[in-house]
Amino acid sequence: MKPFTKFSSRIVPLPIANVDTDQIIPARFLKTTSKEGLDQQLFYDWRYEADGTPKPDFILNQPRARGAAILLAGDNFGCGSSREHAPWALTQFGFRAVISTSFADIFKQNSLKNSLLPLVVPAEAHAMLLQAVEGDPDLEATVDLESQTLSVASGLRIQFPIDRFAKMCLLEGVDQLGYVLKQEEAIAAFEQKRSVSINTLA
């Protein structure tokens, strides 16, 4: 995983509550056995007509979404399934942070493992951000994970929380599997004292 660095970008607003993973990437695209090529499928059914032509009024099809790396989402973003295809599709499109008042648990975990920052802000800050972006579609924001601040060109500065471990993993590009693999001794010791339950090979 590459270290998560400070960046600035336009903000793409999608202020709908409870956006589920079936919207982020519909299930019919999950038959793939690879992680690649999912950017086209991001929000597919909101983004394209039945014949594949882009719907011009959907935000991701508008010029302001081109090259943007920040999605301003509604509450409880990413609810539904555990498919990691959701953060894969978002990062492949170019997003590096999603801002919301809350995230569904599994989506949040999956995002952190893919260098996508789930950035939680209070409801008032969310409303102010949304208002600012609606007033100026080209408004830029800077995400600085190190200092945990989101600063908007309009002058708004928001401090955001993040779990210490997650922050360290993102900043240093720590590979979590590598981290657990290093705990081999503790895992083996635990297995020693564990009472046997099942054997699927029997």
Binding site: G80, S81, S82, E84, I106, Q109, Q176, L177, V180, L181
Partner: peptide, 30 residues
């Protein structure tokens, strides 16, 4: 799979995980 909670009916702590976590559990059982 997010519906892993089904197994909680037995008094098990059962949760859905993403693919990176599937890889982690396959490799480390943790």
């Amino acid at each position: 799979d997010s519906h892993t909670a089904t197994h909680g009916a037995f008094g098990a702590l059962a949760f859905g995980i993403g693919t990176s976590e599937v890889e982690m559990v396959l490799a480390t059982q943790c």
